[in-house]
Simulated scan of single mutants.
Amino acid sequence: MFCLGGRLASSTMAECLKAVEKWWWHVFDLSGGPADEDRKVLHGQASCVFAFEMRPSSPGQENPDIEVKLHVPMWVLGKTDAQLSARLAEWFRIHNHAGFADRYLQDLEYAL
Rank of each mutant, 00 (worst) to 15 (best):
G6F: 00
R7A: 13
L8C: 09
L8Q: 07
L8G: 07
A9W: 03
A9S: 13
A9G: 04
S11E: 12
T12Q: 15
M13H: 01
L17C: 15
L17K: 14
K18H: 14
K18Y: 09
K18I: 12
A19M: 13
V20I: 13
K22F: 10
W24I: 08
W25P: 00
H26D: 09
V27P: 04
F28N: 14
D29W: 09
D29E: 15
S31D: 15
G32E: 06
G32K: 13
P34F: 07
P34M: 05
A35E: 15
A35Q: 14
D36L: 12
D36K: 10
E37Y: 11
D38T: 13
R39C: 08
R39G: 02
R39A: 08
R39F: 05
K40E: 15
V41A: 05
V41R: 10
L42H: 05
H43D: 12
G44D: 15
G44H: 09
Q45D: 15
A46C: 11
S47C: 15
C48L: 14
V49Q: 11
F50R: 03
F50K: 02
A51R: 06
A51N: 13
A51C: 13
A51P: 02
A51M: 12
F52K: 02
F52D: 11
F52C: 12
E53Y: 15
E53A: 13
E53H: 15
E53V: 11
M54R: 04
R55M: 13
P56G: 09
G60F: 09
Q61P: 11
Q61L: 10
Q61Y: 05
N63M: 13
N63R: 13
P64R: 01
P64A: 01
D65K: 06
D65F: 06
E67K: 12
E67P: 01
E67F: 10
L70G: 05
L70C: 08
L70V: 09
L70A: 10
L70T: 06
V72K: 00
P73R: 00
P73K: 03
W75H: 10
W75L: 08
V76P: 02
L77W: 00
L77D: 01
L77H: 00
G78C: 04
G78T: 07
G78E: 07
K79W: 07
T80C: 04
T80L: 04
T80I: 09
D81N: 05
A82T: 13
A82C: 09
A82P: 07
A82D: 15
L84F: 00
L84S: 00
S85M: 08
A86V: 02
L88E: 03
L88W: 04
A89V: 00
A89P: 00
A89R: 00
W91H: 02
F92G: 01
F92E: 01
F92W: 05
F92N: 00
F92H: 05
R93K: 03
R93H: 02
R93Q: 02
I94Y: 01
N96V: 00
H97F: 03
H97I: 03
G99Y: 02
F100K: 06
F100Q: 00
A101S: 06
A101G: 04
